[in-house]
Design a protein around this nucleic acid. Structure first.
Length: 716
DNA sequence: GGACTCTTGGTTTTT
DNA sequence: CCAAGAGTCC
């Protein structure tokens, strides 16, 4: 360790103030690139230096990746051992496992992610005999999640609901919760909600945790939700040694329940709080910061904060217009090559986009140009079928109540146990009020089953029981054994799915790695940990590759050169966020986060046409570009573009069949209205002279107009 | 019971 | 355009 790092001498006065603050609540409002993470790490070190036992410090980060990094940095300062550094979710798993009996749960619980949640909610909707078109699983799940984040239980909600929709939702919520309980499973939101209630209902546990974690540090506090807020408050209630850091301008998780008021009201919550503002930016050039500032000042609902540059001025921020997404992607690839020729490292380059699906065209362009890249959270590793299958085998050993896991593997690979058999076993389990696995064990007593399926079930049960004997061995060898003996390996070998085989190998390697790195490896701990792991956490900065990721995944990172693509209405801001001002502001913050990741060069672009769900559509430049003061009637830079072969078949003749009296409009057609300006057709009811069009205008409002009076001008 | 094709519908971000 | 579910055939 370099001795200079031991003392925080090279800190600014404000940074120093935050680092050396000792007792009581501390709020650090830190702009992008202000050295916030560094401040937290130094603060951990300073606390330890002042005599605090590392064991008594708990730092909470937003992602596992951030936790890892912080652990490494603290380790580099030589003072990390024993400090608890993790995400809220990991901390909750730990607490729930320790106090399981107080939380009235079984400590062997499975953690259900979106896929498994979705199966449970579908089952719940079915049990309520409702139609999934009116009560879509995704919608219901979102609604339940919102309730849980606000710590509203199914019972609470049922008591307060008084209209048809809420009543129905309350029923679904209750059923969904029952299903989870039967499976001994918790979803992500349960981890938080159960912990929050555990602490609320048990002051003595609060006290114990307060004694254990005498100093609580929370990063990215602007993105905490109500449940997390309550948990933090409970743990800190005995000592009030709570230090939170964040930037209200970087709050981008409202949709997940994040409540920006948590940080805005910190001073009211903790009246004796010390407040430190870090406004100096050590990351970006003044040009980049000017761009960021110009954008974010359009948000009405914010606290004023400056971005004070400390770097010498650099290159201009570029905004370019391209013909379509292919043209955009190919040019990004070209520009990356240019940067490389000028000496830039691929690892210092990143491309950000709003939606995951935008990565494909970029990948194609990079492959074409033989540029190495890594996608941060593309198709998630742990959500791949083969990975989930193998994990399901492991899960049922720990938690035999996990019916979702059983249903996944009972016939994977196929072993002749089909839907009918499964339904009959399920019915038997329900009638006897036993678990699915217990029903399988007693299959020979199920009258509705004939001999063949009974035998097949017996073989399956026997196999599982064999696996169970090795449950306490290390995770790596166990995973290997199960992969081989369950028939999964054979199945993948015969189907020649090379990718799947590689993925499983990677999982097995990771399991071995877990055994090596963990003090007390256990299957339960392993499974609960990887449930909380996301692909964002696998981003490897040492790889010599360009990073591709969504704007959300970019949070907390920084790169020398940043490309942000797709600055179009509907993309950024995303169409689902354009309707109300609050969501629009969040989209703006998202763009702000993207801009402020760039250290030296920033390339912003949009495409004039984009293929959306298979349709080649004219786009409208993002309103955010106007806000940056870029005059788009004459785009900053027009690009020459030679159409490639496959553009020939693009169809522009959707509306060529129009009758002379009433023109036809296709969905997505861009139009101009004399009064309302540019807009896009959302709906078109062809009723001859009485045709009606619904148009979403660029200014935000949606209008339904009679075609014959509207006098619309089509724009190509 | 299982593999296959066809249709339909839904579209963001993630611990 | 893509994924999930329904329907069809062996």
């Amino acid at each position: 360790m370099e001795p200079t790092q031991q003392q925080p001498d090279n800190l600014t006065p404000s940074q120093k103030k935050a680092v050396l603050h000792k007792d009581g609540p501390l709020l650090v409002i830190a702009g992008p690139g202000s050295g916030k993470t560094r401040v937290i790490t130094y603060r951990i070190a300073a606390l330890i230096d002042s005599g605090v036992n590392p064991h008594n410090i708990c730092a909470i980060t937003f992602t596992n990746k951030a936790a890892d990094e912080m652990r490494q940095r603290a380790f580099a300062l030589g003072r990390s051992a024993g400090t608890h550094i993790s995400t809220f979710h990991s901390l909750c798993v730990r607490i729930l496992r320790q106090y399981a009996n107080f939380a009235q749960i079984n400590p062997n619980f499975s953690i259900y992610d979106t896929t498994e949640q979705s199966q449970c909610i579908k089952q719940a909707i079915k049990t309520c005999e409702l139609d999934t078109t009116n009560f879509s699983p995704a919608r219901m799940l979102e609604a339940v999640s919102t309730l849980k984040n606000k710590l509203i239980t199914a019972e609470d909600f049922e008591n307060s609901s008084d209209d048809f929709f809420s009543n129905t939702l309350a029923k679904i919520y209750q059923h969904y919760q029952n299903i989870l309980t039967e499976n001994n499973a918790l979803d992500f939101d349960d981890l938080l909600m159960k912990t929050a209630y555990l602490l609320q209902d048990n002051p003595d546990i609060c006290q114990q945790l307060g004694d254990r974690y005498k100093f609580l540090l929370i990063d990215e506090y602007q993105d905490t939700n109500h449940a997390q807020y309550k948990i933090a408050k409970s743990i800190a209630s005995t000592h009030n040694n709570i230090c939170v850091t964040g930037d209200p301008d970087q709050s981008i998780y409202r949709w997940r329940g994040a409540d920006i008021r948590n940080i805005l009201a910190f001073e009211t919550d903790y009246p004796n709080a010390t407040v430190v503002k870090l406004e100096e930016n050590f990351r970006s050039t003044p040009n980049i910061l000017k761009t960021a500032d110009k954008l974010i000042t359009n948000n009405q609902n914010r606290k004023l904060k400056s971005l004070i540059p400390t770097k010498p001025s650099g290159e201009d921020v570029t905004v370019e217009a391209f013909e379509d997404e292919k043209h955009e992607a190919l040019t990004v690839a070209d520009q990356i090559k240019d940067l490389e020729n000028k000496g830039a490292q691929l690892r210092d380059i990143a491309v950000f986009y709003r939606v995951n699906s935008a990565s494909r065209v970029l990948e194609e362009a990079l492959i074409k140009n033989k540029i190495q890249y890594q996608i941060v959270r593309g198709v998630e590793f742990y959500s791949r079928k083969e990975i989930r299958d193998l994990l399901a085998y492991l899960k049922i050993l720990v938690n035999p109540q996990d019916e979702v896991a059983f249903l996944r593997i009972i016939n994977t690979p196929t072993r002749g146990i089909g839907k009918t058999t499964i339904d009959r076993v399920g019915a038997y389990a329900d009638s006897k009020n036993i678990t699915f696995y217990d029903a399988l064990k007693n299959a020979d007593k199920i009258d509705s089953l004939s001999k063949a399926p009974k035998a097949k079930i017996a073989v399956f049960v026997n196999m599982i029981e064999q696996f169970k004997k090795d449950m306490d061995s290390n995770v790596g060898p166990l995973a290997e054994k199960i992969f081989a003996e369950s028939g999964l390996e054979n199945f993948l070998n015969t189907s020649k799915d090379q990718n799947a085989l590689e993925n499983v190998n990677e999982l097995i390697n990771a399991a071995h790695e877990y055994d090596k790195q963990t003090e007390q490896p256990s299957l339960l701990d392993y499974l609960q940990q990887i449930s909380l792991f996301s692909d964002t956490d696998t981003y490897d900065e040492s790889k010599g590759a360009v990073s591709l990721m969504t704007l959300h995944a970019a949070k907390g990172l920084e790169f020398e050169n940043v490309f942000i693509v797709g600055l179009e209405e509907g993309m950024l801001p995303h169409e689902r966020g354009a309707d109300n001002e609050e969501e629009l502001e969040e989209e703006r913050r998202l763009f702000f986060v993207g801009i402020t990741r760039a250290k030296t060069q920033l390339f912003i672009s949009y495409a004039k046409y984009r293929t959306i769900r298979g349709q080649f559509l004219r786009t409208i430049p993002s309103q955010f570009l106007y806000e940056l003061g870029i005059n788009l009637t004459e785009p900053a830079k027009e690009n020459e573009y030679e159409y490639e072969q496959d553009h020939d078949d693009m169809e522009f003749d959707h509306y060529d069949h129009s009758s002379p009296q009433t023109p036809q409009f296709s969905i997505g057609q861009l139009i101009r209205h004399q009064k309302f300006g540019l807009g896009r057709v959302k709906k078109f009811d062809d009723m001859g002279p009485n045709s009606v069009v619904e148009i979403k205008f660029n200014a935000g409002q949606t209008k339904t107009l009679m075609l014959k009076y509207a006098n619309l001008e089509k724009i190509e």
